[in-house]
Amino acid sequence: MSDNHEQHDHMNIPKYVGVFLVLVVGTILTYYAALVDMDSIFPGANTLVALLIAFTKMAVVMLFFMHVYWSKRLIWLSAIGSFFWLAIMFAFTLQDYLTRSEGVFGR
């Protein structure tokens, strides 16, 4: 397949090492962020920061390590589509949890 040749052009060893470093730094950051009490700013701030770091790490892996950044539109579409499915899972699970206290139509 012709894609193989393209991929080797985009990434090289230093770049892979770069991705690895981003992941290591992200992991260390996550650890120290958990030690700081940010929830006093607003509830859930710690979780939010941890998720932001995780999301950044994931984006780096998908875009560069997995070559999505240089890929065709169809690949982009399927990469984004999987997030849509994740959103479905969260949204439809939360519609249960968030409405439990409503009782029968808010009574």
Binding site: W85, F92, D96, T99, G103
Partner: peptide, 22 residues
């Protein structure tokens, strides 16, 4: 098919609202 799983859980203790949507 991905949007209907809650119909396995109508009496499980999920919210009434979720039951109706599913």
């Amino acid at each position: 098919g991905f949007l209907v799983w809650g119909h396995h859980m109508f009496v499980s203790g999920q919210s009434v609202y979720a039951g109706l949507v599913f």
